[in-house]
């Protein structure tokens, strides 16, 4: 394997300064994705800046009722946190639906948002991939794409974002905080992942060299009744082929508030705003839920071998919203 430099930092400013503008340097969090990619040669960083000892490992409620999650909080700690479980149960469910206990003990919130697609072509350096090697082509479009995107993809890339956590965070309007040499900044998660277009290798809107310092969840009473449902090809330790984070608040039989996001259907966690528009103010019932699903999936462009995802997502929307409505009625 290629030799690389390794530096451990305990201060955010030092971390940002150490990484500098070096395109061959990477921040190392839990390493559960980056280290794998280094083994397979997809990532060949010259330097790693280990950020795990930064003082970003806390989850705190802010005065305005938001929940601020540090970037180095582990998935396990996030899932177990009492405030997360009480106020955003779908986030806990999403995290626990991902990976394995060992991986969740290592993986961090910041790293989770930056993990790379599990597209088999991306992971194999002997094959073309526009995301890994811009301009080399996307063999998945004509090849194996059973678990690829049905929404928001382009002719250049049809890979999906693998995160479960990110789907719940997207549903709950999370805002990402970061630090750069020029000072701090913020990005709503909705704007964090740019559209694929013809630049699938540009995966985030973060400025170069930026370090994610945390994620803030604004107060969302609707999230208290929320659910994450993940469908995968085995019962555990597999990425989603379709997932949904949903929150529902029903008043007098009418949808008062709703949050809906899809996983494993696009290059990013997919906020289902068209569905939410149909749902708000409509009767909380099967017909509304089906109409909402149709509205969101109207723009779906399935490939020859992933059309099942349209059916799957429609069923998940109806199924999970129905469960939440029943729970709300209890």
């Amino acid at each position: 394997m290629r030799e690389f430099g390794y530096q451990r930092v305990s201060d955010v400013a030092d971390a940002v300064a150490l990484l500098g503008a070096d395109p061959d340097a990477r921040f190392l969090g839990g390493g559960t994705n980056l280290v794998d990619l280094m083994k397979t040669g997809v990532e060949r960083p010259a330097r790693l800046v280990d950020v795990r000892e930064l003082p970003l490992d806390r989850i705190e409620s802010t005065k305005d009722g938001a929940l601020r999650i540090g970037a180095t909080v582990t998935n396990s700690d996030l899932a177990a946190h009492p405030e997360v479980r009480r106020r955003y149960p779908a986030l806990t469910q999403a995290v626990l639906a991902g990976a394995s206990g060992q991986l969740r003990n290592m993986a961090t919130v910041g790293g989770n948002l930056l993990q790379r697609t599990r597209c088999g072509y991306f992971a194999d350096v002997t094959k073309p991939c526009n995301k890994r090697l811009p301009g080399s082509g996307c063999p998945a479009i004509e090849g194996e794409h059973r678990n690829h995107a049905i929404l928001g993809a382009s002719d250049h890339c049809v890979a999906v974002h693998p995160s479960d956590m990110g789907v719940a965070l997207t549903a709950f309007d999370a805002v990402v905080s970061y630090e750069t040499a020029d000072g701090p900044g913020e990005l709503p998660l909705a704007d964090f992942y740019p559209p694929v277009g013809h630049t699938p290798h540009l995966e985030t809107a973060l400025p170069p060299g930026a370090l994610i310092t945390g994620v803030t969840l604004p107060p969302a009473p609707v999230a208290a009744l929320s659910r994450y449902r993940k469908v995968r090809e085995r019962a555990s330790y597999a990425f989603a082929i379709g997932s949904i984070a949903a929150a529902l608040e029903v008043r007098d039989g009418v949808v008062h508030d709703v949050r809906l996001a899809f996983g494993a259907v696009a290059s990013r966690p997919w906020r289902a705003r068209a569905a939410e528009r149909v749902l708000r103010g409509a009767p909380a019932g099967g017909e509304t839920f089906a109409a909402a699903a149709e509205a969101e999936l109207a723009t779906a462009k399935p490939l020859p071998h992933n059309g099942y995802k349209v059916t799957l997502m429609r069923n998940l929307v109806v199924g999970v919203l129905t469960e939440l409505a029943e729970e709300a009625a209890r």
């Binding site: 194999d124 090849g143 085995r234």
Partner: peptide, 21 residues
């Protein structure tokens, strides 16, 4: 993969065997 003639996902993350669950 018909185009390259090689495997896609040739590892134990891509090649699924039953988990404990």
């Amino acid at each position: 993969d018909q185009s390259s003639g090689g495997h896609v996902g040739a590892d134990l993350a891509g090649y699924h065997v039953a988990t404990h669950a």
